[in-house]
Design a protein around this nucleic acid. Structure first.
Length: 569
DNA sequence: GCCGTTTTCGGCCCGACTGTTTTCAGTCG
């Protein structure tokens, strides 16, 4: 059984136990074990076979026994009994903002409700307000919560949250009573999707800050407002939370509200071991409660015994060991990219001429761009025939004559056909400065076939880059069935760079697969897949994904000067 | 349910806000 499946069942058990009203620490134990197993590098089957389950942190006698049963039989009696006792539908109700285990349990016990539809109906009919601990406002909040969940399906893409968050910051920076202001939370960690935008500010006049915060023109609704914490819903249905702290606590609060939760749990635990207490107000002596640090994140990490850990790394994926041993990666910087190889122009399905793309790229400080239009069989995207390839090369040659200190390269995003052959002959492929290959049709293939198809394409000597290696579209399409480890190994064998596609609904490879590939010494190219000049700045989301995958400047082809890249290609 | 360089029992992170109730439970992060 796969690690994430085991983790998933443990998470569900925790939720079910919560609904039963079990001890908080017991359900937390299930969640901590689930979280550890979810990101465990080693296979849970192997660990079970060798009777080493109890070596996993957070797994003791009882959990080891349950995991063993689950792995060996594919079922867990305890879980089945729990599901009989508590309807599974209740688990979905927990996703509704404002509803926790206690309220869901009360709703089920008193009204027998087990689905969102039944709940909505009961709320509309005013049946919830009479329950103990409920009132009219609770009822309204539940209705609103259901609507919100349906509208946003939970999380926003990174670019949407990014724009909302940083526009809000620009607005807040205008208020003189704010000393410092930053985004925090998953947006600061640049996670691929964002639940809500967290903002942190320091000020000695928090009430003024809160008044200003809720007066932002983009606010649709004020969800909560207090002197230190407020929440609003923007017109695009993104929730933004603001916390205000005193300047001396700013670093501690920024650390605290940046998370991740898992990272912070570990950090606080380590602080306690060193005789400290860490919270959002600062680092304190555990006994005397004396304030030790808090103004900056750096001093907090340092006092606890670590070098500074970049926000993108704070996911409890080994950053503490690396920080302790001084082996943290020197992360790729947001300004390290010198050019973009994955751009579509008017020649295929892009909106802009190569000339206009060049102007924008120069403004961004790039020294080169590569125009990689689609290949001939992708008719829907106006893929280039062999004849049009020659014409495009001619246009680029002419344009380059007029440019100084800037180079346009002619590439292609060549289709890998269903049999693994490429959409251009080798003779045509050799005409390009570089060749991307990618899957654009025949997504529903069995895993072995798909893996073989891609690998066959990668073994063509003219190929340099593999575009969006898993083909996922976040929230819209799952990755195609592919053995990503085999693809990574093949990239190493064939010297092909794996792309980190920066388009916000792709981010493909993702952070964890990128980390895996880096560990196998694979090189990367970060491309935007731009179809419009306004897409070129998406590069920051590709860089963010690379950083979350622990990648350094030296791992990224398009962070090298073009002269060196040409040698490498 | 886990864990232990004071502990094999008694901790385990805890503060802010809302809504209901009148001193606090529930939810969230």
């Amino acid at each position: 059984m796969k690690n994430h499946l085991v983790a998933n069942i443990l998470y569900q058990i925790a939720d079910l136990l919560d609904l039963k009203g079990e001890n908080f620490f017991k359900t937390r134990a299930y969640r901590m074990a689930a979280q550890t197993i979810e990101v465990l590098e080693e296979d849970i089957d192997a660990i079970t076979k060798e009777n080493r389950l109890e070596e996993i942190p957070g797994v003791g006698e009882a959990l080891a026994k349950k995991i063993k049963e689950l792995v060996e039989t594919g079922k867990l009696e305890y879980f089945e009994l729990l599901k009989k006792e508590i309807p599974e539908g209740l688990l979905n109700l927990l996703n509704i903002p404002g509803l926790g285990p206690k309220k869901v349990a009360a709703i089920y016990k008193n009204l027998g409700i087990t689905s969102r539809i039944e709940l909505q109906k009961a709320a509309n009919e005013g049946k919830l307000r009479n329950l103990d601990g409920f009132g009219e406002l609770t009822e309204q909040n539940i209705i609103r919560g259901i609507q919100l969940l349906e509208k946003t399906s939970g999380r926003a893409l990174l670019n949407v949250a990014y724009n909302d968050g940083y526009n809000y910051i620009k607005y807040l920076e205008k208020l003189k009573d704010i000393e410092k202001v930053n985004v925090a939370g998953s947006l600061r960690r640049m996670k691929e999707t964002i639940g809500d935008v967290d903002i942190l500010a320091s000020s000695n006049k928090p009430e003024k800050v809160m008044d200003y915060f809720v007066a932002y023109p983009e606010v649709q609704q004020v969800l909560a407002k207090g002197p230190t914490k407020s929440s609003v819903l923007l017109k695009d249905n993104i929730q933004v939370d603001l916390r205000v702290v005193e300047p001396k606590s700013y670093g501690a609060a920024l650390q605290y509200f940046t998370g991740s939760k898992e990272h912070n749990v570990i950090l606080r635990g380590l602080a306690i071991k060193k005789g400290y207490k860490l919270n959002e107000y600062g680092l304190f002596d555990k006994v005397t409660e004396k304030f030790i640090a808090g103004k900056t994140e750096e001093e907090i990490y340092k006092k606890i015994g670590f070098s500074y850990i970049e926000p993108e790394l704070r996911e409890n994926r080994g950053e503490f060991d690396a920080a302790k041993n001084n082996t943290l990666p020197k992360l790729l910087g947001y300004n390290d990219i010198l050019g973009d190889f994955h751009i579509h122009s008017l020649w295929s399905d892009g909106n802009d001429s190569i000339e206009n793309i060049t102007i924008t790229a120069k403004k961004m400080g790039y020294s080169f761009v590569g125009i990689s239009d689609h290949s001939q069989s992708l008719k829907i995207a106006n893929g280039l025939s062999e004849e049009r390839v020659d014409k495009k090369i001619k246009e680029i040659t002419e344009l380059n004559k007029k440019l100084s200190n800037f180079t346009i390269l002619c590439g292609t995003e060549c289709d890998i056909k269903t049999d693994g052959t490429l959409d251009y002959s080798n003779k045509v492929l050799k005409k390009f400065d570089y060749v991307y290959i990618g899957i654009h049709s025949g997504f529903k293939m069995d895993k072995n076939k798909m893996t073989d198809r891609i690998i066959k394409g990668m073994f063509n000597d003219n190929v340099n880059f593999l575009a969006h290696p898993t083909g996922r579209l976040i929230g819209k399409r799952d990755p195609y069935e592919v053995d990503i480890e085999k693809i990574i190994d093949t990239a190493k064998d064939t010297d092909i760079c794996l792309e980190i596609n920066s388009f916000p609904d792709r981010l493909d490879l993702n952070d964890t697969d990128s980390k895996l590939a880096k560990e196998k010494n694979v090189k990367f190219v970060i491309g935007t897949d731009s179809h419009n000049i306004n897409h070129l700045p998406f590069i920051r989301f590709g860089v963010a994904t690379a950083r979350r995958g622990w990648l350094e400047k030296k791992d990224i082809l398009n962070a090298y000067p073009l002269k060196e890249i040409k040698n490498m290609l």
